[in-house]
Write a protein that binds this DNA or RNA. Structure first.
Lengths: 218, 218
DNA sequence: ACCTGAACACCGTTCAAGT
DNA sequence: ACCTGAACACCGTTCAAGT
């Protein structure tokens, strides 16, 4: 019955630390993230995390990796269910990336900023290349398609996450709309702010992009 | 002949400070940017900038604004040169945004992350709405198109800027390619890394996206 | 191997003060 | 109005030390 009274804490590990770190970023944002706050969160010395990560950048890379691990736990991504055409499976794959991204809006600047070349990314790219091959796209065109679809997906999620949590009119635009004569078209467009639906909009652009990329070589 | 020997320095101003701040970010990156280094750069007390900006976030917002001010100094953006079809003028507008972005690769995370709703943005959006109207797109569809094209443009520039300056094979991918049997398609695609051209790729996706968005309502 | 704690060289920001 | 300088409450990271 020696040190039984110590506050019980899961054994420290890379995964556990990343999990709590991502939780902190989700809650308080990247700016507020600190090794010292992380230490409080995991109940250890401020420097404990340095045993698992050489520095903050490496820990952030780990967070990005953790988010990509949430993308499409195998299923819809690589399944070659021939009953649904490859074009639609490509759309589904992009949506499942988007879904993982939107689960961590405040961490997205990390995802958008740190190019990951990990085994996980290789698996995702490999699967996507498979989908594209089924759609008749290969070689350089496949790489182009993957990049274009990826940057559109991350870009859209990032912009959506950056918006004021309200979801209605983008912040500050109201002020500009006072001068309706200076921005007549913008003012007219403001009528449509109410029924803005990010998911529908994303799908709209995604379909345009994918169809254009698939059809370009005919 | 009192204080003549003082190192000559332009009078401090919002614009001057932003200009030097952007220069620092361009040179050393966002992480390394510090009010104290900025002070050295402008030859003033570390706290001098606080007279013009309430905090670091406000200064970063100013940097983003400064970059958008570099977009298409009027010309190609709003010109209704009827000899070139609206569809092509939309492409040109997106390219001119991209061009301004690529002039400041290390500042791009700021641009991608801070939604700007300033008069300058209103002017750009207003002009873009004009182009879309000429192409027969208005209302909610125009807002969708602007957002989709914008996020694609910023997303692509951000990804490109995030790459290792080398430009060749994305960092670390070589390591993964050792296990060619695990990632057969990725390995095959690697043959095309050499002739990767970001501008061509951007144009490819942009054309797909724009044509899809313009044609969707027929 | 895994974690602690003191120490160092920084930060952003506040505030009272100078001109 | 515009800028300075000291001070405060933090940071990330190093390193020697503990178990």
């Amino acid at each position: 019955m020696s040190k039984v009274m110590r506050p019980e804490r899961p054994a420290l590990s890379r995964e556990y630390i990343l999990d709590r770190a991502l939780g902190l970023v989700d809650r308080d944002g990247i700016e507020a993230f600190t090794f010292r706050k992380l230490a409080l969160e995991i109940g250890a010395d401020p420097m404990a995390a340095y045993y698992y990560f050489p520095n903050k950048a490496a820990l952030f890379d780990g967070i990005v990796e953790a988010i990509y691990l949430e993308v499409a736990p195998s299923a819809s991504f690589s399944a070659d269910d021939s009953s649904v055409p490859p074009r639609d499976r490509i759309l589904t794959a992009a949506r499942s990336m988007r879904c993982a991204f939107l689960r961590h809006p405040r961490a997205l600047p990390l995802v958008a900023t740190r190019p990951a070349s990990t085994p996980r990314m290789a698996v995702l790219v490999e699967a996507f290349l498979g989908l594209l091959a089924e759609a008749g796209i290969g070689g350089a065109r496949a790489l182009d398609a993957i990049t274009c679809i990826s940057v559109y997906t991350i870009g859209h999620a990032l912009a959506q996450a950056g918006e004021p949590a309200g979801g209605g009119t983008p912040a500050g635009v109201e002020g500009l709309l006072q001068e309706a004569d200076r921005y007549p078209r913008l003012s007219a467009a403001a009528a449509h702010f109410a029924d803005y639906d990010p998911d529908r909009q994303f799908d709209l652009g995604l379909a345009a992009l994918v169809d254009g990329l698939l059809g370009a070589g005919d």
